[in-house]
Amino acid sequence: MLRCDNITVKRGNRAVLRQLHFDLQAAELVAVIGPNGSGKSTLLKALTGELALARGTVELNGLSLATQMQRPQDIARWRAVLPQQSELAFNFPVIDVVMMGRSPHLARVEQARNLEICEAALEQVDCLALKDRRYQHLSGGERQRVHLARVLAQLHEGLHSDGPALLFLDEPTANLDLKHQIQILHLARQCADRGAAVFLVLHDLQQARAYADRVLMLKAGRSVAFGKAASVLSAKRIERVFDIPVEWVQHEADALLKIKNPKLNTTNTTT
């Protein structure tokens, strides 16, 4: 579905991503993790065409991203992006915001059907009751969920038939309380199970291990490891990359991340 070869991205003269390789398959959820400033969001921006590549290539379905981006109206039918923060300076009703997600499909799908799809998407993110509320009267968490509904509505066809679907989520849990964090991760997982390729920037390592198929770990713009979630997220590697001593504790079926008391280790943090 998506593959990127040897990409380097610069901001000004500084390379913020260096020589990155990785790929994302259909029906797979890949989480990107790394400390602050490691280039997670930059990578997402490069993969969605928001930032230019200094070197390397990104391919979508076998075609280069640059070629695909020349016809944004085609790509928008099966690829959606949820940014870290969406702003909307004007006060639309919630249903209208979600309806914007249907705009790539307006010519093919009739209005009543589009409305159904949007309401179903709002239902999925637990926001159907907010349908007629004004966007600017919502809390930060509600706004984020409404935008998720917009993105789900955009990919409706891909998620409910055999068509391709590619979903980028940039720290979707950032503004949310625990319940809605889990809800969103469940939804992302569900998208992958339905055949979508999901690319997810995450902060929480435990969540990454629980929900991702594969994990890409970044540090200072370089790939540290890429592979099965459990093996990339070894306690040792986390200690090295995040500079904090941790261990995994098995509790029934779940792996829990336990932070060792950092005070005990201040003299010798790196191993």
Binding site: Q73, D74, V81, P83, F90, P104
Partner: peptide
């Protein structure tokens, strides 16, 4: 109104 890139991602040139 959603933003520069958001509009592109929704298929707008």
């Amino acid at each position: 109104l959603l933003g520069e890139y958001e509009a592109v991602h929704l298929g707008l040139n």
